[in-house]
Amino acid sequence: MKQQLHANRIQLTYATVLSWTSTLGIIFVVAGYLVYVFQLLPSTVSPSEVAMHWHLRAAELHKIVPVPSGWDWIYQLGRGDVLSYASVVYLSSVTMLCLAVIIPLFLKEKDMIYAVMTLLQVLVLVFAAAGIVSGGH
């Protein structure tokens, strides 16, 4: 029997968006890291300075060295460490992007249960990303 694909249109759309955004994310993460460790751009905190304190709790490390966290880096994208951090933020946003894309498709197919469920899922992730439900500052 010849293999037939059983994924529906919405699932295929999600898969295609996921494929592109995640590949881009991996490239972005590696590139950002290389820019940082090879000091191709100036950094807020050098790798050696971070390494001197990475045995401390996250909260303690942040009191000593101003490494990027949350969204406090957004206006300093020209710095190596910030660029590397931004790439990790992008990778953490990929699922949100993919889910957001399929909401209109569920609506178009009048599948209200999954349109609402996906919308709620995106909202949970957006609230987490905004720091509203994840203790951001």
């Binding site: 993460v29 996250a58 909260a59 490494v67 966290s69 953490s92 992730l125 987490a128 203790g135 951001g136």
Partner: peptide, 11 residues
């Protein structure tokens, strides 16, 4: 995202 906001992600 919680780890990112709490500064617990070091690239």
């Amino acid at each position: 995202w919680v780890y990112l906001h709490k500064g617990a992600v070091l690239p």
